[in-house]
Design a protein around this nucleic acid. Structure first.
Lengths: 232, 232
DNA sequence: TCAAAAGTGTTCAAGATACACCCATGA
DNA sequence: TCATGGGTGTATCTTGAACACTTTTGA
């Protein structure tokens, strides 16, 4: 075993960071959580939330830790997006960064934006310039979100546990950046038979009120095991 | 700037490796290029081809270098798949690995398999156990290939520049692991209008001979820019 | 002449799209 | 009573799936 370590030792080591593309949904808009960088270089410029991987910590663990330190949120939907390893991507030294994207439920939306880290939600339709390759990461994250949302029920991660049809539709419209026909949308979603309709209404956005639904995780898993394919 | 380096310095560094899932297509079968590991631990067990990232070298460059050193091939289709960063994934020490998948054209198939590194092509339908998390990587690579092949014309990367319809269909059957109807397959492919039919035939597999086609890269790019979506 | 692979069209079913009006409610 | 957003059904078109026979040619 000592010979192997010998072997590995010939090779260089690198700082490894995780950067998170954190999406939220509010006011009918898809938003991204960013902050102003606290140290040089590029101090004061917009940046994703990131941090260095520590000893004994996996990449996933590092990503979850960084998100937790920032927002206090745990058990958030997170998925690796892509690694960024250009030798000169960080002017302050070589850092290999693994980008993750995360979906924050609407319920937790406000608090996350009010954290002590100066986090700010910005609309994905109007993104400011960001440091280094963070803009590239976000673009890639958006593309991935679009594709994933069409083929897997991850949209629900961006909504509260109980939501209305108009809310759900508005979310998909924000992700796809296009308007959908509400009759066809309902038909499609309900045909998949993964929603539970509650007998309560949400009256916060209309006098009539809209029925609340819940996503049926168990039913969904059964369908998937039976070879079912979620598609919107 | 020295303060930043100071800042980075507080954080640990890691060995970073690339591991390549190398697919080839031959005899109607989708195959994977692997070799027997040359050093402890797990010496002599099946392993993907990998290597450590070097100073001044990006991840993509490292992946291409490793593939070149192994097969002598350049300009091969390669794409990052996923990073693997469990703290204990390598028993000989902490290594963060970035998995890539590569598609080797049929033409280069044989030479790659005959390299001095003892490379061996194995059918993806009958994979041997592999070291560490390499089996997991391959599974993920296969899933990705399936999805990509359905939505982007990457299948052509696995064929020679000129190919016949039966060959192309056989490739898709190998990727999807299911049989396709040849009339429907032709209809779909030809309807996309990205193939150039040549007036020559390949007679190596039948007396009648099958017409050769080429993939029309330019036409495809135009279609994509026009919002077209490749789908098989 | 015949074996073996290449090539070709049509029918049917399902899913996607387009589209317009009534309902419930609080102010 | 009326303004606002929620809710519903049908007709048409497009797309995918199923399916069988003829052609070419070298041995």
């Amino acid at each position: 075993m000592s010979t192997d370590k010998q072997f590995y030792k010939e090779h260089p080591t690198f700082h490894v960071a995780v950067d998170s593309i954190i999406f939220g949904f509010d006011q009918g808009e898809l938003k991204l959580l960013i902050h102003k960088r606290k140290f040089e270089p590029a101090k004061g410029e917009w940046s994703l939330f990131g941090g260095f991987v520590q000893q004994g910590e996996s990449l996933d663990e590092a990503a979850n830790r960084v998100l937790f330190e920032l927002t206090g949120l745990e058990k958030i939907y997170m998925e690796e997006l892509q690694s960024y390893g250009e030798a000169d991507r960080d002017p302050a030294g070589r850092v290999i960064s693994v980008a993750y994207y995360a979906l924050i439920p609407a319920k937790e939306f406000i608090e996350a934006g009010n954290s002590k880290y100066g986090a700010t939600w910005v609309s994905v339709k109007d993104l400011p310039p960001m440091i280094m390759d963070h803009g590239v990461m976000v673009k890639k994250g958006l593309r991935r979100l679009k594709r994933r949302a069409a083929s897997q029920p991850i949209g629900f991660e961006l909504l509260p546990g109980e939501f209305t049809m108009p809310q759900l539709q508005s979310l998909y419209e924000a992700i796809y950046q296009e308007e959908l026909d509400k009759r066809n949308f309902r038909k499609k979603i309900l045909a998949m038979d993964v929603l539970i309709k509650l007998d309560r209404k949400d009256k916060s956005s209309s006098r009539k009120g809209a029925f609340l639904y819940r996503f049926d995780q168990k039913k969904y898993k059964k369908l998937v095991n039976g070879g079912y394919n979620f598609t919107i």
